[in-house]
Design a protein around this nucleic acid. Sequence first.
DNA 1: GTGAAAGCGCTAACAA
DNA 2: TTGTTAGCGCTTTCAC
Lengths: 347, 347
Amino acid sequence: MTSDGVKDGETPRRSRRGSGAVTLHDVARIAGVAPITASRAVNTPTQVSAEVLRKVSDAIARTGYVPNRTAGALASARSRLIAAVVPTIAGSVFLASVQALTETLAASGYQLMLGQSGYDPQREDALLEAIIGRRPDGIVLTGILHTPEGRRRLVAAGIPVVETWDLTPTPIDMLVGFSHVDVGRRVAEHLHGRGRRRLAIVSGDDERARRREDAFASAAQALGLPEVRHVIVPAPTTLRSGRAALSELLQAGADVDAVFCSSDMLALGVITEAQSRGLAVPEALAVIGFGDLEFAADLHPALSTVRINGAEIGRQAARFIVERAEGRPVESRIVDIGFSIAERESV
Amino acid sequence: MTSDGVKDGETPRRSRRGSGAVTLHDVARIAGVAPITASRAVNTPTQVSAEVLRKVSDAIARTGYVPNRTAGALASARSRLIAAVVPTIAGSVFLASVQALTETLAASGYQLMLGQSGYDPQREDALLEAIIGRRPDGIVLTGILHTPEGRRRLVAAGIPVVETWDLTPTPIDMLVGFSHVDVGRRVAEHLHGRGRRRLAIVSGDDERARRREDAFASAAQALGLPEVRHVIVPAPTTLRSGRAALSELLQAGADVDAVFCSSDMLALGVITEAQSRGLAVPEALAVIGFGDLEFAADLHPALSTVRINGAEIGRQAARFIVERAEGRPVESRIVDIGFSIAERESV
DNA sequence: GTGAAAGCGCTAACAA
DNA sequence: TTGTTAGCGCTTTCAC
């Protein structure tokens, strides 16, 4: 008798459904070993004899067997699935993080499930429920802001969580980010140091950008500069909204000599609008962006911007998650990856 | 006795692991119904009495139960998971498709697993194996080119497949795309119609772009134009490679009055380089892009480009997949969503 | 409308 | 090194 109660050599009757796909049982039967042995040959080949390994490999090659990870996940309580939540992937500064995350995880045998919250806390909650239902081995979040409900759920689920792109002394679990307050302050100081006095800020309507904005304004005030002009544009930010923002500023008769934009795309919009009006950048107007996207360094004029190592955020988040999933303790749970100001031609 | 052999009201002993999470059994026990009844209350509420529904809902609220979709997927052979493969998400023209896909699927209760093949057939194959192992209810592919091995695997797995962003008479399964050959031809005709005679093409090194390129060159020849100048840049394309490409063209002494770029970012690069050299666009040089990304219409000059409705590709792909997953037959398996030429200032 | 039984495909625990 | 047993948490089948 074989282990599943089927007489030797007979075709097993599947009393229910069965997708018809090749299963580990089929492979084991063909290889002439027990299912668990075939499982070991697949997952921990060092634990089986060369003889068994050969027979099982042959059987797999002959049948085209692809392990059913869903079943494996259920049995082992390890899904090898990681979820990531971003506000949006459209033209976003988070792409480098997601890309690095995907690649680093793939290298360790994990896959990514991507969700978009659309800057909407309610959708984020719904998404969280859907994600938790999949029992991923980890969740990577963009930002630290969650509804109390979402936070509670996440803690209750007991799934490792990495929050990113921000800093807080009280993360849910692990954290990889930088200080938006520091960014705002440093940019104000940078512009001041370059002789700019009449500052403006064009900012997307999202929480982190608002925090940079506030810090920027406070720092300007502390430096004795006139009040900062603000233009808020909807998130996600676009080239178009950058153009519109500069128009608005100019039409309001604002006397500005430098603009801090909450994204590089917005900055490109401001530069584009300036150029179309014959306003020289940086002579008449300095422009500084945020993100240091691929194109920033190659614009004409080259865009000064706040450089965030988004890829490193993704990589570090992946490392955190994998460490945890493999059961290794994570020594430091909070990593401040910092930022720098890429000084180029537009300031 | 309850159905799982545990005496009424007693704590079930879990002989093996058990994540400790609340299960449907727990909910059922608290609600005083059988597990299957609780399952029905959750999944097909119309099939249970109001009384049962209330008791089960209460129990769920009290326990914070989140259904384990992994177990559900295994039992029902429906994962409600869809996989998508893109070459890369970095600054890509596919983002609109992925975004629309995610949203449309989410609205029907499906989630997206995202994989990046990095324009590498081998990685695509590895990815495919990882994906098939998850037994998704559908797979959305970018492009139609797969290794024979990958194609074989996909067919063997019996999972609904939608190929996108291209056209072929022999899709693996379903298809949403447009003709790259037509694009190349139409752009050549468009430039010719606008009085341009000395054409060049700057193209990313990927298969679809090459096909547009070839069709563009052939059409130019058919129109009696001088031979088209080609510059091939690595994929993914960037602003930088666009600038470099125009420099190369100019340094080679090429006498060109129009450039067709295989992406809008590339086109922005060409425009940027032209501007930095004092070369007027469109007067001295016409530039046309591909993709009609968000920023294209708002550049200065506004970028003429090939408009692809990427979001619609994503939505249609989602519809295909969901129809199939719900067991409804898909009437037409091939959709040509076409394209148009957005005529703006750069030509 | 509700429930008992069986099992999806795999692996942890324990035994030999 | 290999195998037996017993599930992981859910849903299908079939019966009432």
